[in-house]
């Protein structure tokens, strides 16, 4: 317990951590201020007009679907006139569409919470991932480099306990900060929408979806943090983690992707970590693979869902962490 307390204090006292927190607050402040300045509460007239436009578009979509069904029933006299309609009318079915036009789509200069919450949350998760990775890597990297770990081991000569306490403290601190930051972030934008914007129609499904993204985002932040910590532990330096990620992105995600395309390897996205990150965060991700198609006459799409994505990310992080502990246990600290 004392070790954890000391590590919490050490982590909080680090300049880099403080700088990253300031950056987080700054990014938060700038986003909120910009939103606040560029939004206004819609007047009753604006709202009514937007509602009318949304209803009109929805009605138009329903009509188009109806026409398509009528064509199939042979009720339309001039079939050529409706040749733009797809062979499969379910593609036009409003009930099956991913997105329905809503009032907020037709409000200009108005911050609408239900429309913006998701991208705002993705931005926050991305920032927290960067925060976790850099803080995780620098926390252990700087400690290994500055002799802090050696000093600590002279006091507590249990390597795995010391490294475990550091990782546990780091993950706990990042989780705590992420929870606080994301809660504050969403509440702030909810209030902004109430005061100078438009909250939009919220229901249980909306909150559930937002909550799911939030939860998955936090898990991803923790995995990335642990990954940065593990790579820096193995490489003894913060820069080892940065270098490893940069090398992976350039060599594999960019270079490897090109090579796989040249070699016409099936489903190359399945071999990219970014696909699993995106699939985990979004819940499901659809990719396109034309390598098996002849004359374009096939559906080459395939999806990666959050389950396999989580398995891949967990396996990778667990592997890196286990390797870091194994290396640290046997390493000569000179």
């Amino acid at each position: 317990m004392n070790l954890i307390r000391a590590e919490v204090e050490r982590l909080a006292a680090r300049r880099f951590v403080q700088l990253m927190v300031v950056l987080l607050v700054l990014a938060f402040g700038v986003t909120a201020a910009t939103t606040l300045a560029s939004s206004h509460q819609p007047t009753a007239v604006e709202l009514a007009e937007a509602q009318r436009q949304a209803a009109e578009v929805r009605r138009g979509l329903e009509l188009e679907h109806e026409r398509c069904l009528a064509r199939d029933r042979g009720e339309l006299p001039d079939r050529d006139y409706y040749s733009h309609l797809p062979a499969d009318c379910s593609q036009l079915d409003p009930a099956l569409r991913d997105y329905q036009p809503v009032t907020a789509d037709f409000l200009s200069g108005v911050f609408t919470f239900t429309r913006q919450a998701e991208p705002l949350l993705y931005f926050l998760v991305a920032f927290l991932m960067l925060f976790g990775f850099l803080v995780g890597a620098s926390y252990i990297g700087a400690d290994l480099n500055s002799g802090g770990v050696v000093n600590l081991l002279l006091w507590r000569p249990r390597r795995l306990t010391v490294l475990g306490a550091k990782l546990g403290t780091l993950l706990g601190a990042v989780l705590g900060l992420s929870l606080l930051a994301s809660a504050a972030y969403l509440v702030t934008f909810w209030v902004i929408a109430q005061v100078v914007g438009y909250p939009g129609p919220t229901n249980a499904a909306f909150w559930a979806e937002l909550g799911a993204i939030w939860g998955r985002g936090l898990v991803l932040v923790l995995l990335v943090t642990a990954g940065g910590f593990a790579i820096a532990t193995m490489g003894r330096h913060t820069s080892a983690a940065l270098g490893a990620v940069a090398a992976y992105l350039v060599l594999w995600e960019l270079g490897g992707r090109i090579v796989l395309q040249i070699l016409e390897v099936a489903r190359p996205d399945q071999l990219m970590l970014a696909s699993y990150v995106a699939a985990w965060l979004a819940g499901t991700m659809t990719f396109w693979d034309s390598s098996g198609c002849n004359f374009g006459n096939c559906n080459g799409s395939y999806t990666v869902t959050w389950g396999p994505a989580l398995a891949v990310l967990l396996l990778l992080t667990a592997g890196l962490t286990a390797a870091a502990f194994a290396v640290f246990r046997r390493r000569d600290l000179t």
Binding site: N2, L3, R5, A6, E7, E9, R10, A13, R14, R15, A142, D143, S146, G147, G148, V150, N151, L152, W155, R156
Partner: peptide, 22 residues
């Protein structure tokens, strides 16, 4: 050669060690 974290004061450095070591 003893190495310490440069941004910490001597007091904080020792305090953290004292905390960790009980």
């Amino acid at each position: 050669s003893p190495q310490f974290f440069g941004n910490f004061t001597a007091h904080r450095t020792l305090r953290l060690l004292a905390l960790a070591g009980g």
